[in-house]
């Protein structure tokens, strides 16, 4: 499951990287209250850049739209307003950026721990799930068959 038909040029330009870092840091900022880094944290952002893969062209398209906004030169409130406008006007491109950022942010050990997860993959330990109370089905049984006789 690792051989791809097509390669992906993952290299963003320096300007594109800077814009993406600004967007990531705004989208999911660091929070002392929740004890989490922002998505522009160096480790997380490096993961984001490494993982663009199939989305690199769409990410680049989104960043080119945003580059016209000169985000870096704006004050925080103005930048937030510009990004909100972008998100409303181009939801499909905003969605690509959300995908690129969130899939890496939420696998960071610090973040997983902060949201109550063990920082590990599901396999091989798995998880516990309660069986549930099968007596809840008593009313369903009491109603009797509901399928149609097709004879």
């Amino acid at each position: 499951m690792s051989t791809t038909q097509t390669g992906h040029d993952a290299a963003l330009s320096e300007t594109e990287r800077d814009t993406l870092r600004l967007v990531a840091g705004h989208m999911i900022p660091a929070s002392d209250a929740y004890g989490v880094p922002g998505a522009d944290d160096p480790e997380i952002f490096a993961d984001i850049l490494r993982s663009l893969d199939r989305d690199v062209e769409k990410v680049r398209e989104a960043l080119q739209v945003l580059a016209q906004e000169e985000l870096a030169a704006l004050e925080d409130d103005a930048r937030a307003a510009r990004l909100a406008a972008f998100r409303a006007a181009r939801p499909e491109l905003a969605g690509v950026l959300e995908l690129a950022v969130a899939r890496c942010y939420y696998r960071d050990d610090r973040v997983m721990t902060a949201i109550g997860m063990e920082p590990r993959p599901p396999f091989p330990l798995g998880y516990e799930v309660p069986q549930g109370d099968l007596a809840l089905l008593d009313p369903v049984r009491a109603r009797g068959p509901i399928y149609r006789d097709a004879g």
């Binding site: 993982s51 899939r103 939420y106 696998r107 590990r120 993959p121 599901p122």
Partner: peptide, 9 residues
Amino acid sequence: PSAGMDWEA
């Protein structure tokens, strides 16, 4: 995927 940290991605 479930064997790695990138299981959702």
